[in-house]
């Protein structure tokens, strides 16, 4: 393996790893405060490596919903990874075989995907594995620390840590919404939709996992019909 390429990947992944550590600390604290064991929270982070999907998955687990609901929730919320993997697949070209792809697929998060696509030089397997190294360590380690600390910390601190994930989501959504009115419209629709599910008595009966899925799809489908993306821009 080309160590120079690997080390380069690791260094590029450092800020993402640090960011993941602090955000997953919040996930760990939140999971424990909702009744999960420390090892369960840590295992979720180690095997999933995705913020939004895990967060929704936690909601499904806590609600004691069906496995089908879990699969459906993950399918919808993580569907964007299919697009990212498609795009990454094109970038990787024919030289990279199936086995490395099987490994690299695991690390395809929003941030790692963004870093990989931003690289000017051709993508190599050691570079991509290097990119994923610190983020997976940071994400899993942060969850472990958050879960351990979460069970001894006072409620006010746990509350504060729990909103970190929301803070991260807001930080991802607001800048593009400010830049593109199409995205702003999508965000506005989703806001209205999820508020209806939260506050309308009839819709309140719908479980949290399903309502997230419905809001996500309904708003995205309406926006796609009204504002179809430009050719080649849809990643």
């Amino acid at each position: 393996m080309n160590m120079r390429e690997y080390r380069l990947g690791v260094s590029h992944g450092l800020p993402v790893g640090m960011g993941y550590f602090s955000v997953s600390f919040g996930f760990g604290a939140m999971a424990v405060s909702q009744g999960l064991k420390v090892w369960e929270a840590t295992l979720i982070s180690l095997t999933n490596l995705t913020s939004a999907g895990q967060f929704a998955g936690l909601t499904v687990i806590v609600a004691g919903a069906t496995i089908l609901e879990m699969i459906l929730t993950q399918l919808i919320i993580n569907s964007r990874y299919a697009l990212m993997s498609l795009a990454l697949s094109q970038r990787m070209g024919q030289r990279i075989g199936v086995f490395p792809r099987i490994l690299i697929a695991f690390f395809n998060t929003d941030e790692i995907f963004a870093l990989a696509m931003a690289r000017h030089e051709p993508l190599t397997v050691p570079y991509l594995l290097g990119l994923g190294t610190l983020p997976i360590l940071g994400w899993t380690g942060g969850t472990l620390c958050g879960a351990l600390a979460g069970s001894v910390l006072p409620v006010s601190i746990r509350n504060a840590l729990g909103v970190m994930l929301y803070g991260m989501f807001i930080a991802i959504v607001v800048p593009p919404a400010k830049r593109e009115r199409e995205i702003l419209a999508a965000v506005g629709l989703a806001l209205v939709c999820s508020s209806l599910f939260a506050w309308l008595p009839v819709l309140q009966k719908v479980s949290a996992g399903i309502s997230i899925v419905l809001c996500t799809l309904v708003s995205a489908c309406i926006c796609a019909a009204v504002f179809p993306v430009k050719e080649e821009a849809a990643v």
Binding site: A52, F55, A56, I76, I77, S79, R80, A82, L83, D110, Y166, F169, I170, I172, V173, P176, A177, E182, I183, A186, V187, L189, A190, L191, C193, S194, S195, A198, W199, S211, I212, C215, T216, L217, S219, A220, C221, C223, A224, A225, F227, P228, V229, E231, A233, A234, V235
Partner: peptide, 21 residues
């Protein structure tokens, strides 16, 4: 194009629906 458009908006609508309220 429609499917690609839906997938383009999914991250934003999903994160919003999970965050608010």
């Amino acid at each position: 194009r429609y499917l690609r458009s839906v997938l383009y908006y999914v991250p934003y609508t999903c994160l919003t629906a999970m965050t608010f309220p």
